Computed example of a mutant assay.
Amino acid sequence: MLWWIDKKGGATMKENKLDQYRQLVSFLGQVLGPDYEVVLSDLHSILAISNGQVSGRSVGGPLSDVALRILKTNRQSKDSCTLNYQGRGINGKLLRCSTFFLKAPGGRLEGLLCINFDDSRYHELAQSVFSLCHPDAYLQQNVQISQVSQSGSETFYSDLSTLIDDMFARVTCSSDLPDHRLPYRDKLNIVSSLYQNGVFSVKGTIPEVSARLGVSSATLYRYISKVKKEADPAIP
């Protein structure tokens, strides 16, 4: 057997299989070239990466927000991959991203293989060619170059603190109070939003979030339990 099951019900690769995937990441990175980032991750963090300068990440970094949502919604149970969605690197560059779901026998998810393409220099080249072929006035009147929407894109993080900072900014933007001074219901709403976005599936988030909210880890676990019951009353 090449797999064992982790505490969250997913499968974890044994070392010999993991080495094969690491070699595949390196191979694909060299074949595709420096504009393609190839990333191998388990259900918690990045295990191997080639051309990490594309998104600005490295081994040990957390999963992206899209990867967390995939795990939270169990999307991988019916799909083998998700293709050509938009991402944004730590450096702000827009990327074209695709993710393949690595599954153990029986269908349990054990990891993600992602390829993120930075096509910015090709867009710049296309702009240059258009400007050479057409006078500016003609270009403005007759050639429309569509801009990719920046909404709904995938966000990559260099470390756990950056991930949590971004998630907190999304759910507390309407409040002027420091996080630790928020009333109980507001804190519970924050925990609910973080839970819905899969944040608590990342190792190390409990102490980080509890410190931000000014509560103990035990209290945060009670918040999470309450949120789970509100989301699914069937949970005991």
Score class of each variant (00 low, 15 high):
Y85L: 05
E15V: 12
V209Y: 00
S192Y: 12
C97V: 04
N197V: 03
D119K: 02
I115S: 03
K203L: 15
N84C: 10
N74M: 08
G204W: 07
L40C: 13
S161G: 12
D79C: 09
V148G: 02
Y223V: 03
V227I: 14
S225P: 05
V59T: 08
S217R: 13
V202Q: 05
L63F: 09
D119G: 02
C81D: 08
C114N: 04
Q30N: 14
I49T: 06
S193A: 15
I206H: 01
Y221C: 08
A48V: 06
L95T: 05
I235D: 05
R22D: 01
T155G: 04
F101M: 03
G198K: 05
N16C: 06
V202D: 01
K229G: 11
D65M: 08
Y138I: 11
L160Q: 02
H134Y: 15
C173L: 04
S80A: 08
S120T: 15
L47S: 01
Q140Y: 07
K229C: 11
A218Y: 14
V148W: 04
S45T: 13
N189C: 05
G89K: 00
L194Y: 08
M167P: 00
A137M: 09
I70S: 00
R69C: 13
V66F: 15
L125D: 05
Y85H: 04
T205E: 12
L112D: 02
S58P: 06
S193V: 02
N51H: 08
F117M: 09
I115M: 13
N51E: 06
Q141C: 07
I190R: 01
Y221D: 11
E15C: 07
K78S: 07
V202Y: 02
I46C: 11
R222Q: 14
P233M: 02
T99I: 13
Y138C: 08
L177V: 12
S149M: 07
A137W: 03
G89A: 03
L109S: 00
Q20T: 06
Q150M: 14
S210P: 04
L109P: 00
S149A: 11
L40S: 11
S210N: 13
V171E: 04
L177Q: 15
L163I: 09
D79A: 08
T162Q: 14
C81N: 04
T12P: 01
L132K: 15
V66T: 13
L213R: 00
T155R: 14
T99K: 05
D166N: 12
L95I: 05
L40H: 09
D65P: 04
T82Q: 08
R108G: 01
G111Q: 03
G29K: 04
L94M: 15
I145G: 07
S192K: 11
T172G: 13
K17D: 01
Y184A: 10
G61R: 01
G198R: 05
G107M: 10
R75K: 11
D186S: 15
V39S: 00
R22L: 11
S192W: 05
P236N: 00
Y122C: 07
Q150H: 13
L188F: 09
